[in-house]
Simulated scan of single mutants.
Amino acid sequence: MIDTLPGPTALPFAVQLKTFADQEGRFQPKLCGLRLIETAQDNGLRMTVKLREFEVKDLLSLTRFFGFSSETFSLAVSMLDRFLAVMKIQPKHLSCVGLCCFYIAIKSSEEEKNVPLANDLIRISQNRFTVSDMMRMEKIILEKLNWKVKAPTALHFLRLFHARIQEQVNGDSKKVLDLDRLEAQLKACHCCFAFSKVKPSLLALALLALEIHEEYEYSSAEGLLEALQEIQQHLGVKDGDLSCVRELVAKCLVEYSSTRCSRPNSQRLRWIISGRTARQLKHSYYKIAHLPTIPESAC
């Protein structure tokens, strides 16, 4: 049975925070596995940081194209990092792993009527494997994650913290923190491998801290810092740790917004499913060789 998180409730902030905080440690990617990815040479035989980041950007393209929720994307990234941290996969299998994590997240987070067929998802993402390959990989992923799918992600914490701060402040201060903007920034951070090693709660807190401190340079956002510090105390986060991750977030956002950054190419996706292209597709397009057998050796 797939493990899930409890849905939104009217529980007090402290209770919700404790529930998420108690669970986040159990869903963190294994550091030993992440370090292997970090130190791997780019020789086409091992998973690398660059390959992982490219895959997440592709998933972000698909999320935007289909109009799926931020929750779907964050959950897919969480599962991908957790799986990569326990399995030594070859680069040629990465696109199948990534799309399977994405598909599991879609089925866990989206309404049933919005869940695409696996065959359509493969075609639109322009991947070269079959539905049977995908179903086989999905089973491997679920088994290796012990069927624990719905982890408390940074998005859960971000929304919880944002709601708490909004309760604590008045007037113009409520308008300072735009949740849509914060969620967009979080998606950019998900594309950076460095945040795979950061606790979701700390990443969410750092995003809010960066936004609040930047606002303080231009106006006195009354009560925002106090509300942020209250959450920090609840989490037991040290000032130095928060400052370090906040600087990492700032650097990531600058790089992501620069012209040098390799961003997701949604235009590529629009082309493949245009009406004219769809009508011209031949049956042979789907007759693709199966993937090689995937070794199930853990880290």
Rank of each mutant, 00 (worst) to 15 (best):
C191T: 05
V97Q: 03
S108P: 12
D239S: 14
A221I: 10
C96W: 01
L205P: 02
K18Y: 13
V115S: 08
S108Q: 05
I89Q: 00
L51K: 07
P292W: 02
S109V: 09
Q233K: 14
D22F: 13
K251G: 10
T48S: 01
Q168H: 08
D178Y: 02
N146G: 14
T72Y: 06
S243N: 12
I272K: 06
L145F: 07
A194N: 08
S132T: 07
L51G: 07
E24C: 13
E183Y: 00
S74Q: 03
A118R: 06
W147V: 10
Q232K: 11
P6F: 14
G25K: 12
I288Y: 02
C261I: 02
I231R: 06
R263C: 09
Y256I: 01
Q90F: 11
L179W: 02
L202T: 05
I288K: 07
C100G: 09
I89L: 06
I231M: 10
E143W: 05
K175W: 01
S262Q: 14
R64G: 08
R128A: 12
L158I: 06
V131Q: 05
L31T: 10
Y285F: 14
S219G: 14
S274W: 07
L228V: 04
I2D: 11
C192P: 04
S109Q: 06
F102K: 07
L75H: 04
L94P: 00
S125W: 07
E226R: 15
F27Y: 10
G275L: 13
N170Q: 12
L145A: 03
Q28C: 15
E71P: 07
S284Y: 03
G44F: 06
Q23A: 15
L269N: 03
I124M: 13
L80V: 08
R159I: 02
S78A: 15
I124F: 12
C32W: 14
R181C: 12
M79F: 04
A221S: 11
P29Y: 05
Y103P: 09
T4L: 15
L202Q: 00
Q267A: 14
T4V: 14
V237Y: 01
D178A: 04
E183F: 00
V131S: 05
T48F: 04
I89Y: 02
T48K: 01
K107L: 06
S74R: 01
E211H: 05
P91G: 03
S61C: 13
S70A: 15
L84W: 05
L242W: 03
W271D: 04
S257G: 07
E215F: 12
W147S: 11
T4Q: 11
T259C: 10
L117K: 14
S173K: 04
R52Y: 10
R260C: 12
Q232C: 12
L94C: 07
I104Y: 03
T19D: 08
K199S: 15
S257D: 02
V115Y: 03
S219F: 11
Y216G: 15
C96A: 06
A221K: 11
T293P: 10
S266Y: 13
C261T: 00
E55H: 12
K251D: 03
